[in-house]
Simulated assay, not measured.
Amino acid sequence: MSSTTVETAPMVYPDSDGMPMADNTKQFRAIVTIQGNLEGWFRDRADVFVAGDLLWYPVEGRPDIRRAPDVLVVFGRPKGDRGSYRQWEEEGIAPQVVFEVLSPGNTLTEIAAKFEFYDEYGVEEYYLYDPESGDMSGWRREGGRLRVITAIDEWVSPRLGIRFARVGDEVRLYLPDGRPFASFVEVQAQLEQER
């Protein structure tokens, strides 16, 4: 009697979706500014992971189910480099906060699909920023679903503690200590001035 062993190929979860991080300089600067300020704010918290443009796989065995949020924040997971965020390897913890930054190439269908994904896989807070108009929209999980935040002006994120405030025609973000989010160039200018 002979036995036949069937070997199956290991499941592959690519670390890249082949898509660009940003379509233009405004979008790229917004992504880097949001990610950098959040990572800087939580730098002393070993249990907060902040990343930008990182593929998130919520379901083991389903590499086709994935998204790469422009910025994601996960409480309860250690800092460190990752090729992708595989939720089953992260104690089953989904990113609690996600930011998306619109580009001119985004379609309504694409934006709706991202919203459905974040809603289905447990994101607690979802923010959508348009760097062209300066407008920001937000959703917060209530009753098991993402529900629109009707008044984003002076909204304070329950998870992050950051404040959203309308300044003129745009929404600006402020750290819990009151400082506005700053770009790398603004931080460099401030450091030089302090010297």
Results as ranks from 00 to 15, higher is better:
Ala165Thr: 14
Glu170Pro: 02
Glu186Phe: 02
Thr33Asp: 02
Pro95Tyr: 01
Ala112Thr: 09
Ser133Pro: 13
Tyr85Gln: 03
Asp47Leu: 00
Tyr129Trp: 05
Gln188Leu: 11
Val171Pro: 15
Pro131Thr: 03
Gly168Tyr: 13
Asp81His: 15
Asp70Ile: 04
Gly40Ala: 00
Tyr126His: 09
Tyr129Gln: 06
Arg163Gly: 05
Tyr13Val: 08
Thr8Ser: 00
Phe164Glu: 07
Gly138Pro: 13
Leu55Thr: 05
Phe184Asp: 04
Tyr129Asp: 05
Ala189Met: 14
Ala22Trp: 04
Lys26Pro: 12
Asp64Val: 13
Glu90Leu: 02
Val6Leu: 12
Asp15Val: 09
Phe164Ile: 06
Glu89Ser: 01
Asp17Val: 01
Leu108Lys: 07
Ser133Val: 14
Trp139Pro: 01
Pro20Phe: 03
Glu186Trp: 00
Ala22Ser: 14
Trp88Met: 01
Tyr13Asn: 02
Leu191Ile: 13
Tyr118Asn: 03
Phe164Ala: 13
Asp15Asn: 11
Gln190Phe: 11
Ala189Gly: 10
Gln27Val: 07
Thr150Glu: 15
Ala113Thr: 03
Asp44His: 15
Tyr129Met: 10
Arg141His: 11
Asp130Arg: 12
Glu39Lys: 07
Arg159Cys: 06
Thr33Trp: 06
Lys114Ile: 12
Gly40Arg: 05
Phe75Leu: 02
Ser137Arg: 15
Tyr126Ile: 11
Asp169Met: 09
Met21Gln: 04
Gly168Val: 09
Gly36Asn: 06
Glu89Gln: 11
Pro158Val: 06
Gly40Gln: 05
Asp169Cys: 03
Tyr126Asn: 12
Asp169Lys: 10
Gly92Met: 13
Ala51Gly: 02
Gly76Asp: 04
Arg66Asp: 00
Arg141Ala: 09
Phe115Arg: 02
Ser157His: 10
Arg86Val: 02
Trp41Tyr: 15
Tyr118Trp: 06
Leu102Trp: 11
Tyr174Arg: 01
Gly144Ala: 13
Asp119Glu: 15
Leu55Cys: 06
Val167Phe: 00
Ala46Arg: 06
Arg77Gln: 07
